[in-house]
Amino acid sequence: MTQLETAMAILMKVFDQYAAADGKTSSLSKAEVKTLLEKELPQLIKQAKNKEDVDKLIKSLDFNGDAEVDFEEFVVLVAALTCSCHGRQGKK
């Protein structure tokens, strides 16, 4: 596989791994999102000033308001963080 194909496969695997924790594999619960962020993005959690910041991030991911984060919402988070880290957010 190419590097990009590998990255895509890893995204799918990570989502599936954490989503399966409660047996509902199609979405992440709030607890699953927190665990994913703590284990997979520890620097993000360290930079959060307080617990409310993390809760706001999780709530902001839930675009459709179903109190869960599905794969599409998860990918938006990863893309936004990637853009932010790369310094290209909002540039054209």
Rank of each mutant, 00 (worst) to 15 (best):
G90W: 15
K56W: 07
E40G: 05
K91I: 14
E32R: 02
Q47W: 03
H86S: 15
L41D: 00
A20E: 09
G23W: 07
L61Y: 00
K51C: 04
E68H: 09
I45N: 00
E52V: 08
E32M: 06
G90A: 12
C83G: 13
A7R: 08
A21L: 13
K91M: 07
P42M: 03
D16S: 12
V33M: 10
K56P: 05
K46M: 04
D55L: 07
Y18S: 03
E68D: 03
L28Q: 01
K30W: 01
K34Q: 13
N50D: 12
D70T: 01
S26N: 11
A67K: 14
L28C: 05
K56N: 15
C85V: 12
Q47S: 09
I58S: 02
K51M: 00
T35N: 07
H86D: 14
K13Q: 14
N50R: 04
D53V: 01
H86Q: 14
R88P: 00
L41C: 07
N50Y: 03
E73Q: 10
V33E: 08
E52W: 05
F63T: 13
K39H: 08
E5Q: 14
A80K: 11
D66R: 04
T25W: 03
Q89F: 15
V76T: 13
K39D: 08
V69W: 06
L77Q: 06
Q47C: 01
V33H: 00
I45V: 13
T25G: 12
Q89D: 13
V78R: 02
A19I: 10
K24D: 15
P42I: 05
V69Q: 01
E68P: 01
A9F: 09
E5I: 06
A20K: 11
Q89W: 12
F15A: 06
I45G: 03
D55N: 14
